[in-house]
Design a protein around this nucleic acid. Structure first.
Lengths: 328, 328
DNA sequence: GTGAAAGCGCTAACAC
DNA sequence: GTGTTAGCGCTTTCAC
């Protein structure tokens, strides 16, 4: 690779000092009252030879890497993939890069990665936290590393977060099933997790069935279960309880549910799931969705993190974004 | 943030020189014949205080960032999300990081990003190239930057790549529709793109229908079309040609196709699509898939790139991975 | 066997 | 207004 030019090459070739070049390149020409002509001469030359500052050196010197670590639970889940996409775009507009990683339920790997990112002088973190991560996130916070959580927060962690109105979303879903779809035995299928977003959805379900006067029918699926086992469990749940409506706590549970319904030809077609998914309009029965506002969530997450990085955030910011019901 | 320890702090606290610490930390203790005890003392201390080298400084010095840039076409496409996931994991095992970005048909942004990554001293690139990227990739190659393309290659670019057996896959799909499903009017729906993987699939289709003695029925959808327009176009194509079977060139076309079939109640149920997708087994009619071997593709891509980075690659490597037919 | 010191490319305090 | 220079944290040559 042909040797890249450095700032001193530029300075040398132009017969000026490094400082001058540096100032001009960092938009401090005015401030430092460098002459217009010189400024232009430097800028033109820089452009002409295609000089680009070495970001590593810059970062080393300034202590800022202009990089954000994004840790999502599972990038192949459409919800996270979409959010990641949004976040990446927004961060880019602020001049930041995203280093992402998909944790896939591997707490140790996640911890390692946070540590690694931290060691690489990342400017801030965006994380969908899981239970095992409390301690390490705590450590980040103690070291004043900017952190924003999303999708859920952690109980014993005082930090910024952006989540959806999970409880209200679940209420919406149950009401829709009961009032518009006239379902009478509405089950709730969730994962066996204490994650706050799941707790919120459960609460919403419980409150809604209580208000309507229906029997609460809840199935918690172990997250570690294989897909087949999940499908079987859902089938049993539906059959045993003679369900005529279901609220799924996440899109992948809904997918397993659909598989169960299809495989065993179950006579149930009043379905609602959290998180929109292209599939939902294509399958029979179609699945209504409690869609999270991904654009808004991403926007908030990035805004909060950037102002945290810039030190313009004084207090913790906790944002709750409403969901929208998509009727099918 | 409490000041992080640097190597000189360690040296100071231990009363040895920076050099010694550096050697020990870089596994050169033996080579430099540093005493066992000292080595142990340093290692223990480093562990005890939790010292981690500053990767930026290290990179600046060594010129290696241990980071790989991954540019995919669209991270919210399940195919790319999955591959990205695999690649990230494999790279991690080699001690590399992934900086990813989703290009979403924005050639200018993609170019900018490649440049930006390059400016950040990225060690290598993994790219799903689009037509407009030839020139900039050429530039990377000329500068001896390690590059591996995947999913498709570019005609006029002599570089490493990993692709699937697109032609053979399409052949497989058409044969399946004709021989096992007994379809007689098999359409091929693809995108209006000269990308090589699409050309391969088209060739396979053409060859297969010719061999079987069927009429070639091809629809090219403009990639910039909205989803509704795509659905409408597919509907027209099916109806006009009285199709009884379809081969879709990509999974998102199949999704649009399903929408068309469902929305307009079209009497067609012999479907095959490139790229597996969870939906395909859930919908009615189900969609058989020509599944690309994502694990293998990711493995090859990473292996090639790493050996390219290490300079152990002498010649260009061009890998073609077989596809598997999933019957439904 | 171990240490001093140069230098990777950059920023910015300070000098003039 | 512009230049000199220290130093970010690390690796590595050369000296002892």
């Amino acid at each position: 690779m042909k040797k890249r030019l450095s700032i001193s090459d530029i300075a040398l070739n132009l017969g000026v000092s490094v400082t001058t070049v540096s100032f001009i390149l960092n938009d401090k020409a005015r401030e430092k009252r460098i002459s217009e002509q010189l400024t232009k001469r430097v800028l033109d030359y820089v452009k002409q030879v295609g000089y680009k500052p070495n970001q590593l050196a810059k970062s080393l010197r300034t202590g800022k890497s202009k990089t954000i670590g994004l840790l999502v639970e599972d990038i192949s889940n459409s919800f996270f993939a979409n959010i990641a996409d949004h976040i990446e775009k927004l961060a880019y507009e602020y001049g930041y890069h995203i280093v992402y990683c998909s944790m896939n339920n591997d707490v140790n790997r996640a911890k390692e990665l946070i540590q690694l990112f931290y060691d690489r002088q990342i400017d801030g973190f965006i994380i969908t936290p899981t239970e095992g991560l409390t301690e390490i996130i705590q450590r980040l916070l103690k070291n004043n590393v900017p952190v924003v959580l999303f999708d859920r927060n952690l109980d014993d962690l005082e930090t910024n977060f952006v989540i959806s109105e999970n409880k209200e979303g679940a209420l919406l879903g149950v009401k829709y099933l009961a009032e518009e779809k006239k379902a009478e035995r509405i089950g709730f299928i969730t994962i066996n997790s204490e994650q706050l977003q799941m707790r919120g959805r459960l609460e919403g379900y419980n409150e809604a069935v209580a208000a309507i006067g229906l029997e609460p029918l809840i199935k918690r699926i172990d997250a570690s279960k294989s897909d087949e086992d999940t499908v079987a469990a859902i089938k049993d749940f539906i059959v045993t309880n003679k369900l005529d409506g279901i609220l799924f706590a996440t899109n992948y549970l809904a997918l397993s549910g659909l598989k169960a319904i299809k495989t065993f030809g179950l006579p149930i077609h009043k379905l609602v799931s959290f998180d929109e998914n292209t599939v939902f309009s294509l399958v029979e029965p179609p699945v209504s969705a409690i869609a999270q506002n991904m654009g808004e969530i991403a926007q908030q997450v990035v805004d909060i993190l950037i102002s945290e990085i810039n030190g313009t955030n004084k207090d913790l910011v906790k944002v709750v974004v409403p969901c929208a019901l998509i009727r099918r």
